[in-house]
Amino acid sequence: MPLLVFNKNGIYCPQADVYLDAWRKVPKCIVTHGHSDHARYGHGQYITHKTNIPIIKHRLGKLQVQGLDWNETLLVNGVKFSLHPAGHIPGSAQVRVEYKGEVWVFTGDYKLQDDGLCIPFEPIKCNTFITECTFGLPAFSWEPQEEVFNEIDSWWATNRSDDVTSLLFGYSLGKAQRILKNVNADIGPIYVHKTIYDLNKAMSEDFDLPEFTLLDTSMDKSELKGSLIVAPPGVQNAAWIRKIGAQTTAAASGWMTFRGARRRRALDKGFVLSDHADWQDLLTAVKATGCEQVIATHGYTEIFSRYLREELGLDAKTEATAYEAETIDQTQETA
């Protein structure tokens, strides 16, 4: 029996009777991070990193949850579980599972770039590496974060000098805080959508974000002129957006690599800024584990695992999961 199996509920450890990021209700579940396709409602008991506790409580309401520190071992029926930084969003973890000397790692979602917000990804030696590959195509190659934010800053500054409001869409958990943390706040006032505002307040850790104001759609629109509004992508077509006057829109996402994705969403501008690993970083991550077996869970799984088999000689396969990745237009928090 493998240490971890994929069943209809999620990724399961039979020896410990524990699930990882289950997509159906289960008695006991280790949760890698707070995005809704990984942290689902209704499990009996949640185990997650301490930073993630206020986040999932904010999103899922009251729950029974046990918090772990980085590297802290949780022993269940002889199986050692521990959490290690995944660098995806605040509180996101990889799960290391060890039993009788065999080690498996499940990444959840991750990136190798240091975003200045969360604790950077830590490579872990293992026998089997269960990895996401949302951007597992050679067409994806991220620029250094600094360059992307230089672009964002100059876009905002230009808009501001033209008295145009800058609307920047990014997922409310992770991307929004990363934008706030790294944008040049000296350019002008920053407003955030309520979903983001509430999340920022709910996070206990001090991320040292610049000053931001809750966007009140009833406020005088001249106040917003030239400001930066950070909002989740789902509100792009909301009625209040048309009422805020002269504006220009942009999205920050790995999918903005494709011109087609941006044009389809009728955005003015796309910034390629992702909380996932790009092609080279996925390969780097796989190689750093020293693993013999790779299981790709979501993203361009067939392509990525074929490459690992044929070009790197690894035993790589794919398993179906309910984690979102293939679509660009998803309002889910996957990019």
């Binding site: 195509l137 050679p138 067409a139 494709f258 087609g260 361009y300 392509i303 074929r306 070009e311």
Partner: peptide
């Protein structure tokens, strides 16, 4: 430095 098949797969996804 990539195999031809993965270029073709990428082309189908990028669309241009």
């Amino acid at each position: 430095n990539i195999p031809a098949w993965i270029f073709e797969e990428s082309y189908h996804i990028v669309g241009d």
